[in-house]
Simulated scan of single mutants.
Amino acid sequence: MKMFHTAASNIPNFPEFVIVTLLDELQVDYYDSNIRRAVPKQDWSNKITEEDPTYWERQTQIGLGAQQTFKGNIEIAKERFNQTGGVHVFQWMVGCEWDDETDKVNGNWQYSYDGEDFIVYDLKTETWIAPVPQAVPTKHKWDNDKADLAYTKNYLTTECRDWLKKYVEFGRSSLMRKDLPSVSLLQKTPSSPLTCHATGFYPDRADLFWKKDEEELHEDVVKGEILPNHDGSFQMSVDLDLSGLKDEDWGRYSCVFHLAGGQEVSKRLDKRDIRTNWKTNDGGLHPGAAAGGVLGAIAVVVLAGVGFIIYKKKPPQGSSSTSKSDTSSSSGEEAMQSMLKTSS
């Protein structure tokens, strides 16, 4: 489970403040400063209200409060870096991984400004790491707050794990499903590498590779990363250099998709199955274009990938927009800002 709070300054067509929660890369909820409310992004997210009817209302109120805090913290960050204007982004990312076989938990809590790490919590040493000089005052302040250090550790190792387990139980039917992909052979021009593209699979524990006869190929092959689709499924591709391939050997090659658990999809290399947008000598489209359409850019949804924030906030209880109150006499938002106002 990963939770992102993103604040942006002077970015056209982008909200000033966004909250997103991801569970195994599947978006669970969403809040931004334009719609000004927290909304579930999965049908099973609504199961939370069966136990807690006011859950989404509280999420909205906390999002509204955090929105104002973030706006102030960008100004604080600009002061730290001696900046007066321009485009700026900062984020907070907090999350945990849970192994349901060993019950092992790993946690991550970090902040960045303008795409660079600002300050990161080290779970092993239970201290803060300051990668930049501007974060040193914050590190000293937070390292001296023993109660907050204990809370941060407890959240990452216990509370986050408990919420992750609850979310997994709510979304078990979706998260435990196994979907095989559609597999296509794509080529831009006759001299381009041949791309085997698999899309629509779930989960992302999968592999895609070329093989000759029954042996996996490692030479003349370039494998891409697994990327998310807008519907929560995944896609990936692997390229094969055809420059040294003899015509009589085409039938010996195949692209194989392997999903965790043993399910496979295999597509044998056949010129008739190649989808392309290059033209034949007579000016017409290659037969593969008529059969499958034009090879174009693959659209990828990127969620909250601009950098991590630097504001110090108690983490959510089950969602990225739920905050835990500070124990100080000041409000949570005031306390967040004051942590960055430490003089340098």
Rank of each mutant, 00 (worst) to 15 (best):
S173K: 11
E51P: 00
G95F: 06
P53W: 06
G251R: 01
V89W: 07
P203I: 06
G283M: 02
L26Y: 01
A150S: 08
K47S: 11
R275I: 12
Q68H: 04
E25N: 15
T158W: 08
Q42Y: 06
P133G: 06
L185S: 04
F17D: 11
I310M: 11
R205V: 09
S233V: 01
T158V: 08
R161V: 00
N13M: 04
K313A: 15
M1I: 09
A130S: 14
R252G: 05
N82T: 00
Y253M: 04
W163F: 10
K271E: 12
V238L: 10
S331N: 14
H286D: 15
K71A: 15
Q110R: 15
Y253K: 00
F257A: 04
G283N: 00
I19D: 01
C196I: 10
N229W: 10
M93T: 12
K71G: 05
K166G: 07
L22M: 05
M236T: 14
T84N: 11
G107C: 08
N13Q: 14
V87I: 10
G65D: 12
K212S: 03
D326A: 04
M1Q: 03
L185Y: 12
Y155K: 01
S192D: 14
D99C: 14
Q235V: 05
T54Y: 06
P53R: 12
R36N: 15
F308L: 04
S112C: 06
W128Q: 11
G85C: 04
K141G: 06
L303M: 13
K71Q: 09
V28C: 10
G251P: 11
T280Q: 15
Y55T: 04
N108E: 05
G293Y: 10
E57N: 12
P53S: 05
V120K: 07
D239R: 00
D52M: 10
Y111N: 02
K153P: 02
S325A: 15
G288A: 08
R272I: 06
G244H: 14
D273W: 05
S344K: 06
K267G: 01
L149G: 01
V136M: 15
P40M: 03
